[in-house]
Simulated assay, not measured.
Amino acid sequence: MKTKEVIGMALLGACVGVAIGTTIELVFSFTFAGTSFSPGTPEFLNGFTNSNLAVFVERVVYALYGIICSFAGLLYRDEHRPLALSAAMHFGVVILCGIAAGSYLKWWSSGWGMLGVIVSIVVTYLIIWLVTWLFTKGEVARMNEKLQ
């Protein structure tokens, strides 16, 4: 890969990570906090003397999570590996990084909370995977039309 491609993947991954992270924050705030928005869990935010710094650190974690997931997508480029194995490996990276990020950001305080986070990661992963599959399927159909 060229440097330009690496930088592009990193920037895109960071943006997607921050977008997904902040969207999930909003969903959880709406679901559990009612009408007020909380950029993170009180346990995490209270660990900082400055809430701006806490939110900045949180966004950096989201960006790093997105970058790692973006580069983990390279696992799909090995054409000799079965697609199911590539997907399982990619999912493993995503879920392990999600658990690490969630642990650092104090997303749960109990086993049930951790299970909820894991379910959220799985659902988000499945939605992204489905959208990607549908997009790729459409591209293949368009290419096949051009070839005929």
Rank of each mutant, 00 (worst) to 15 (best):
K2E: 14
V6K: 15
V6F: 10
A10W: 06
A14Y: 01
G17D: 04
V18Q: 04
I20A: 15
I20N: 03
T23R: 02
I24H: 02
L26N: 10
V27W: 10
S29G: 09
F32H: 11
F37N: 08
S38C: 07
P39W: 04
P39D: 08
G40N: 04
E43H: 12
N46L: 12
G47I: 11
F48Q: 10
S51A: 14
L53N: 04
A54K: 06
F56S: 09
V57G: 00
R59M: 13
V61C: 04
A63I: 02
G66Y: 07
I67V: 15
I68Q: 05
I68Y: 03
S70K: 03
L74N: 07
R77Q: 09
E79N: 09
R81W: 06
L85V: 15
A87R: 08
A88Y: 03
M89L: 15
M89I: 06
M89V: 07
F91C: 05
G92W: 08
V93H: 02
V94K: 00
I95S: 07
C97N: 08
L105P: 07
G111W: 13
W112R: 13
G113D: 07
L115C: 09
L115N: 06
G116Q: 08
V117K: 04
I121R: 06
V123F: 12
I128Q: 09
L130F: 13
W133K: 13
L134M: 13
V140D: 10
A141M: 11
E145D: 11
K146G: 04
